[in-house]
Design a protein around this nucleic acid. Structure first.
Lengths: 118, 118
DNA sequence: CTATTATATCAACCATCATTTATATGTAAA
DNA sequence: TTTACATATAAATGATGGTTGATATAATAG
């Protein structure tokens, strides 16, 4: 049982291909979604670009904290940046982000209700 | 600027409702998906229940590590457990988990290709 | 009972991360 | 230039989390 890499394509259910370094990207994205304040920021961004100050005021978080999380969201490419004067506007990089959050929300509800009803 | 909780329903894009403690559940789920080894375990589980030893051998990970991650996946309700003799079989709690992983994979590919092509 | 197999837990170490406070950078106006 | 505002960064701290190695529990066979 030295090493065996010959059973990849047997149990690939939804995607096709190697999935080598892709799992790292998926994990990286998921970790970026794994913070409540970042989720609030993404949800607050919605579909309109907003400046940092607006997010700070809207979510009632400290400005360095919002800035830090925005930096993290930028690192994971989940938001796009646009400067205009002294303002920096952040925007969702892709609308599917909200869809994924919705799917996670649905899954969480499902798992929790399944848990309490059994 | 003491406190203001009067602008909730203005910018809810995809779901409806309070989203109060739901974001915590979403973040919890996302954090559980935010580890490459756990993703490999979920992907390895696929749709058939497998014992711990099978996962250990299939992914070439140490048994305590797999057991620890399975415990974490159980804590987030992403897997179901079924004992049979000395074996403990783990199974995906919901098939939509693979769909969410696929969506994250698609988003990652999209964001990365968008990044390198601009 | 002992022995063996399957799985879980414990302890320790190291890394990552979220948060706060303070400070720095940058931009625009007077 | 100074002043004011918007945002970013630094340093420090506390908490959480992944990994390894050793050990413990559980079930079964002999």
């Amino acid at each position: 049982m030295a090493d065996d890499r010959s059973k990849d394509s047997a149990t690939t259910p939804e995607w096709s291909g190697p999935m080598d370094g892709d799992l790292a990207s998926i994990a990286f994205l998921a970790r970026s979604l794994g913070d409540e304040n970042r989720l609030r920021i993404l949800l607050c961004l919605g579909e309109e670009k907003k400046a940092v100050g607006s997010i700070v005021q809207e979510l009632n978080l400290s400005q360095p904290l919002v800035s830090h999380h925005l930096k993290e969201l930028k690192r994971s490419l989940l938001v796009k940046i646009e400067r205009s004067g002294p303002f920096v506007y952040y925007q969702l990089a892709d609308p599917s982000i909200l869809g994924i959050m919705g799917a996670l929300h649905l899954l969480a509800r499902e798992l929790l209700t399944r848990r309490t009803s059994f």
